[in-house]
Design a protein around this nucleic acid. Sequence first.
DNA 1: ACGGCGATGACAGTAACTCTCAAAAGAAAG
DNA 2: CTTTCTTTTGAGAGTTACTGTCATCGCCGT
Lengths: 215, 215
Amino acid sequence: MTSMAPAPTESADAAVPTAKLGLRERKKIQTRQAIRRTAYRLFEAQGYDATPVDQIAEEAEVSPSTVFRYFPTKEDIVLTDEYDPMVEQSLRDRPPGESPVTALREALSSSLSRVYETDAAETFQRIRLIREVPALRGRMSEHSADTAQVLMNALSERTGRAVDDLELRIVTAAMLGALTEAMFSWVDSGMSGDLEDLRALVARALGVLERGLTL
Amino acid sequence: MTSMAPAPTESADAAVPTAKLGLRERKKIQTRQAIRRTAYRLFEAQGYDATPVDQIAEEAEVSPSTVFRYFPTKEDIVLTDEYDPMVEQSLRDRPPGESPVTALREALSSSLSRVYETDAAETFQRIRLIREVPALRGRMSEHSADTAQVLMNALSERTGRAVDDLELRIVTAAMLGALTEAMFSWVDSGMSGDLEDLRALVARALGVLERGLTL
DNA sequence: ACGGCGATGACAGTAACTCTCAAAAGAAAG
DNA sequence: CTTTCTTTTGAGAGTTACTGTCATCGCCGT
């Protein structure tokens, strides 16, 4: 896996400055990208379940062991991202006076936009995959739990409530759940994949929550 | 909470009624019970991940094939139940004038009580397992999706909204999510396993939603 | 009593991991 | 540039959760 096209397109997890990194680090990033891109391509072509890890490894020109070293599970190839720090920062950047829900809403909303702008096509494909493959949907809840934890930590400081406070957990769970539904709804109907559509759906979804679930 | 599984309520040692069932049917119920009980016992003793299906099969005195015939996946041994029809019925029994959220809340709340009364100990152990084992947590979201679908169908009739209406999905997702958090909170803290504690937690959780997530 | 059919078990096969270990390759030091 | 240290990689063997097939066994209706 030495020589491969430099591949200018920077992918989702590549919001990293490749500048002053050692060769080792750069190669790791490349390998990670190669695996992920290959996987996405194959998933697209023949389906997630019908694509064995061995094939991904082969076409990405690495050994199966390496794939598992980078992604502990096959699901992680699709689900792994490093947006949590960004979301956390967005939340901490909200003015202290703001109500928790508003802060959360704005933080999530702006993060979503940034993610989308970073790599629109892959984001869309990713959400669609998660939406369609049961195994991925299931696993996503575990990943969401991590994000939820990050949000709860920030919200805990902001409100003075305990990090494991039930109300706090409900609020985060509800918001993340609504966000997920909005994203699913997005890939379901509007095949356009337009950001504005997504924003509108998210606004509707969070609106329902803020209105106390009134239909 | 998922569908399928014809088996009637299977309580602890309470002799299964099964009056006018053929021997075949009775054996099936017994086998199902044997597998599940053995599994729960082993999970309790040595942990979920550390318990291979082969061992469950051996100790339940059936072949591994049979285990998979009764439970498509190992997770299903813990997650499969037949409460969905009951929840649906509860919801349909609510007066038509009632607001969707109230109806949903009452339906879920009463169903929860009935489930608990059916088999308190196993319910508690089950929730604890789901709470603690990541694989189960993940898979549960798929099972919840089935329940959500049932609820959305009923709510759709009740409100006249489309079954895949975003607002409807948000409401159900939020309610089920809150319910889950309440149950997790229940097994987390109150090691008592008291029903009243659960009811109180559920009330708090759903209350947060109805108050528009105000903290 | 018997013949059909549903349930079971034995077996072979696949795929997702896990562990170990030795070789390859970047990094640091001389 | 060479040596040495450290990290990354690949190969291979093993485990486990499934999946599919097929012969057998035994309940069930006639």
